[in-house]
Simulated assay, not measured.
Amino acid sequence: MNNTAYSRIDFFEQLYTRYHGRLVLYANKYVHDIEVAKDIVQEVFTAFWKHTEGQEFIGNAKAYLFQVARNKALNAIRDNKKLLHEADGPSAVLNEAEQSVLSNEVNPFVSLLELELEEQFEQVMNRLPQGCVEVFKMSRNDGLKNKEIAEKMGISVKMVEKHITKALRLFRKEFAELLSILF
């Protein structure tokens, strides 16, 4: 097997692993049937595989996948009008987390992104030392100045600055990939 074929397969597997679940939720937002949404996503990845055959990878694969999922979901609705009126159908079985992800009526992708950001934010916060977390929350959540934080915690202003710098450094490192995707 040549390197190009292997790279294509590897790239495809990474995309599938990363986006399959999110695409199912995204498609379900339109069709209100999780099984239909899963079928749609299967078609999306099949279309992606066929579209990239003999070509370079698509520049923004994520955007392509979500756009194709949206189009296929809308086609499914058009082809099967009853999906529009199944409010008590299989979508009622979705768990609370899935429902919250799909809560943004205007743009479900925004809800998915918000959920992912919140999860990643919590993971980073859990990796910071407790004192660093307290200082960071006082600075960012409570809007306190460094001097006020130092007085409240009984530490120097320099120590407050070190805690904030440490937290920001870790956040920049952890969110670098996500920021490069967004911007």
Rank of each mutant, 00 (worst) to 15 (best):
L15H: 06
L94D: 01
E116G: 02
K158W: 11
S100G: 08
A150M: 04
V36S: 03
R8P: 00
T52C: 09
E43T: 04
G54V: 02
F175G: 04
G21R: 12
V160Q: 00
V110G: 00
R70I: 04
K82D: 13
G89S: 06
E43Q: 08
K147G: 02
T52Q: 14
F121D: 07
E86N: 13
N75I: 10
A150H: 02
L168F: 11
N141D: 15
I181L: 14
L144G: 00
Q123V: 09
S100I: 15
S180F: 08
F136M: 07
L84K: 11
V101E: 11
F175M: 10
K166Y: 09
L113Y: 14
F66K: 05
V106I: 15
M125G: 01
E177Q: 14
R22Y: 14
Q42C: 05
E86D: 09
A69P: 01
A37K: 03
F171C: 02
I155M: 05
Q67C: 13
E13Q: 13
F171A: 00
A61P: 04
N104E: 09
F171Y: 07
V44E: 00
I155C: 02
A47S: 13
K137T: 07
F48N: 00
K166Q: 10
R18W: 04
Q67D: 09
T4H: 08
V68A: 05
H85C: 10
L94M: 08
L65D: 03
V110W: 10
G131P: 00
Y26T: 05
F45L: 02
I34P: 02
L179E: 10
E122S: 09
Q67P: 01
L23D: 02
K81C: 04
K29Q: 08
D79G: 14
V160F: 02
L168S: 13
S103H: 06
Q120C: 07
L179A: 13
W49E: 03
E13S: 09
V133L: 01
N141I: 13
S7L: 13
V135N: 01
L83E: 00
Q14N: 10
C132D: 02
I181W: 10
K82M: 10
E119T: 14
F175D: 03
Y26F: 15
I40Q: 02
